[in-house]
Amino acid sequence: MSDAAFETPVALRLDRLDTRLRLVAVLACVIAILSVRSPWVLAGLLPVALATTGLCGLGARAVLARLAHVEGFLLVLALLLPLTVPGETWATLGPLTLSEPGVERASMVLLRVNLCALAVLTLLGGLEPVRLGHALARLGMPRKLVHLLLFSARWVALFRAEAARLDDALRARAFRPRTSLHTLRTLAHFTGQLLVRAFERAERVDEAMRCRAFSGRFAMVADERPGGYDAIFAAGLAFGLALPILVDRLI
């Protein structure tokens, strides 16, 4: 992530913030978004959220790809709610009638989900898992869970490379995934092989770590301290979240 961050000038440098503040901030954003009850206030927040992604240096393409993924999940709900929720007719499309409460409900869900997704993408996107682990440990997450996270984060890249090698081997043998039993069996052997290799590697890692006197405890090296930048960001965010909630309660 850091490469891109250095190349383009970015107005809001989230990577300069204390990671703990980023975690608290994203939670505050999501809870604030969920507590707004008026669809108009939420709709007003959408351009603000999109502008913020720009300020943080996220490309439009990354944002769209992320939102498209969310839309996939929501399509079913968003299409069905206007048709299935009983209430006054809002519009008719041939044989289909869209009910007013249904449309309202669907647009609320769509706005909330998209805004929350934008908040998570903006505030957590590009956060290195190691920093996440250390910040969570300092926020009081159990040590075992933190270790599990740190180890997993370390190995995701490694096993993606291993999976890519197996995938190369498959394609070198002219394998094309299709809807067939052969594809599923191949995928199963692929997964099984990945598990076997991982298991053998895990045993070696385990022995190597025991040889180096690993007792199940990592030294947590974290030197992050909140500074002036964090204070300004926190104040700005508090204002930015309080305003829509206030407007929502007053109208």
């Binding site: 270790h147 180890f151 997993s152 096993f159 999976a163 990945l194 991982a198 298991f199 890692v205 385990d206």
Partner: peptide
């Protein structure tokens, strides 16, 4: 605690395998 590396490695495999689209 000593089992954490092993669990993490296996968990990672499931994570990676689920990234593939069928």
């Amino acid at each position: 605690e000593a089992d954490i590396p092993k669990t993490a490695i296996l968990a990672t495999v499931f994570f990676v395998a689920s990234l593939f689209a069928v």
